[in-house]
Design a protein around this nucleic acid. Structure first.
Lengths: 394, 394
DNA sequence: CTGAAAGCGCTTACAG
DNA sequence: CTGAAAGCGCTTACAG
């Protein structure tokens, strides 16, 4: 034991030497010896590591004088607590406590950086994460990857403090996280499409869509075409509130719900990166408009879809908004005029705020050592521009 | 000691029970007891943890029979080695060895996901990282952040295996990484703009630019305008090879170098997200063209700039390519015609390949436990489209 | 207010 | 081929 202590002293001298003599060759296989531990501090101060450990955390049980001496020695020796995190992690788990790694993970779909919608949420998350000096671990996940997906190793080793699940709408991911012994009990927050059993940050789709329809009703429109996407049970969570918002507005204006035709469009219409011309679908949309000349306004599921519809309408000789009004949803995909000014009336989603809210929530839980499920709903407001106008009743 | 072993046995029985009786309440403050360790396996097999440790790694010193028994027990108990990574990390550092975390970090500028250029490199990195079951840690960094920047805590704790520095061109980042005791000696790879003292993956700017000029010379052009950006010492590394490529081509065709005018444009011209109309600069560009009617071809520093120039030329009444040919660089920013087909002749950079190459390099080093500096140069090829044509000599 | 001891879970020499 | 022991660096009861 005594010998051992001498060994340490020897290393210390070594370390000092190699700082002074900058050309000095470090013993390459003994780089571990360069690492400063609480033991080095203890020796220099003539106390035990227990005292150092508590002093460094400014525990009240250690006298102020000793605490300062320990801190000074730590500074001098260049002690970095993060460096020996592994030991701390191990002893903490002995007492059933967790350490804070300042790492949060983000699950998101592979193509996230290609779509403004995802990119803006990502931006908000990253802003907060950087500000709070956390690191962000990106994990790509897509429903189709389900079979091959394996939770990255870091989740197992307890090195991730919390997770944000960015869309996905895929409950198994959450279960995997909760079943993972290295991650279990840590906070999770799902975005946009809520998962059950964790915190959520969502938009107020209902009031957003409600505001859009109310705006059209105020302009005299009474017959609508709502372009949705193929409904599956999964997606009803998105579809439901939107439709309810529409119904609510119609009801307030005593317009029968039948006056809103719901049209399912191909999924690719809402994702411009998957878009491939689908002539049959495009023809069908125009046929509906021809057959129902009473329709004077179109509500699209998102801006990308509104964009596509605008092109079709223009090619077919319709004028927007003179002949027909058009409203988007999400406000990510501008429809610029010649001077580059966005023309599309749309429901504006505070996407960056959503990212920020989720990151703040997770970081708060991590720093407090809590895991309280919270549900935050962010407002969706109508941005009125130039694709909506007074109804042109035939 | 004996008591301790009994405690463990007790926990095990508990664990089995709670699997059978799914409604059974787990002791919440004893969740650590649920964790399976090599000790549990050792007890079940009647061997020591040393044997288990070696058997799990299929060390030849352990008999096949014992190895299989250990593996079977591990399976049964649901042992997960990653879970106790902290202990492994600690013992490994005792013997001066590293463990593989399957985590690599990526340093990149804050707005990376907004620019196709960055996004495509990112895509390539992510593809390989996901395929190799690594996790990616994103760290935003920008020269302007230098004062406030602090290396995230995870780098200190030895939980990051290697780093890719994505642009930045900022040597201090590399020094910070190398000075960090938790990261020291691990592989680093810088992209596009090489840092000294680490591996690099770059493009063959020289041959890319050379091919572009040769193409124009073949079309009969003899007087060029090369639109560059403000030259600082930092940026000479980009500027140098490009200019050398131009000179080489001119020389081969015996065209005096003076026939290539170099014009500096504002930095914002190469970054569409920072673009704001700069009428004076725009007028100056047109003035140059008016004053030098012998110029029949423009080489832009990147596609974004080419885009901007195309708009200016068109507005000023020039026809591209009939009156003037235009060549971009990077091939990220298409100039679509009415049918959506890109018209811009440009030097195509294999951006995804670059991301993939850097990720492969780092992952190879990590898995081999080596840190060999390598320099990879990827080809840049000319993509000939419709903004270049036979010179219209006045 | 501080020290001596135990132990988190693992891997590696070193015995046998 | 396997076991007993040591120790990575830390924190926490428990003494004094």
């Amino acid at each position: 034991m005594r010998l051992c202590i001498y060994t340490y002293k020897c290393y210390n001298t070594f370390a000092n030497l190699s700082i002074v003599l900058s050309g000095f060759q470090r013993p390459t296989d003994k780089d571990t010896g360069m690492k400063i531990t609480q033991r080095n501090i203890a020796e220099r101060c003539g106390v035990t590591t227990a005292t150092v450990s508590m002093a460094l955390r400014r525990d009240a049980r250690i006298s102020p004088v000793t605490t300062e001496r320990v801190w000074a020695a730590a500074q001098e020796l260049g002690y970095s607590p993060a460096q020996n995190q592994a030991a701390r992690r191990m002893v903490m788990q002995r007492f059933g406590r967790k350490i804070i790694n300042r790492v949060i993970a983000l699950f998101l779909p592979p193509q996230f950086h290609r779509l403004a919608y995802y990119a803006r949420i990502y931006q908000g998350i990253m802003d907060v994460v950087t500000e709070e000096q956390f690191a962000l671990l990106i994990t790509l996940f897509h429903e189709e990857m389900d079979a091959t997906f394996r939770m990255p190793q870091v989740f197992n080793s307890g090195e991730v403090d919390g997770t944000i699940v960015y869309m996905g709408h895929h409950q198994p991911v959450l279960n995997d996280l909760h079943d993972n012994p290295g991650f279990r009990e840590r906070p999770v927050c799902s975005l946009v499409l809520p998962l059950t059993g964790c915190s959520t940050v969502t938009f107020d789709d209902f009031h957003g869509q409600y505001a859009a329809v109310k705006h059209l009703l105020d302009l005299g429109h009474r017959n609508f075409l709502y372009l949705s996407f193929p409904r599956t049970r999964d997606r009803m969570e998105v579809f439901g509130p939107r439709l309810a918002g529409i119904h609510q507005a119609l009801q307030e204006y005593h317009v029968p719900v039948l006056h809103c035709r719901v049209c399912e469009t191909p999924m690719e219409w809402i994702n411009p990166h998957r878009y491939s011309a689908n002539e049959e679908q495009e023809r069908r949309l125009l046929e509906v408009l021809q057959a129902h000349r009473e329709i004077t306004a179109i509500l699209a599921h998102n801006d990308a879809m509104a964009h596509r519809v605008w092109v079709l309408l223009t090619q077919a000789g319709y004028r927007v908004p003179e002949d027909i009004s058009l409203v988007g949803f999400d406000d990510t995909d501008p429809l610029p005029n010649a001077s580059g000014v966005n023309q599309l009336t749309s429901v504006r989603l505070p996407l960056e705020d959503m990212g920020r809210a989720s990151a703040r929530h997770i970081i708060r839980q991590v720093l407090n050592g809590t895991n309280e499920v919270e549900h935050e709903v962010l407002p969706a407001e109508l941005a009125i521009r130039r694709t909506t106008a007074t109804a042109c009743i035939p």
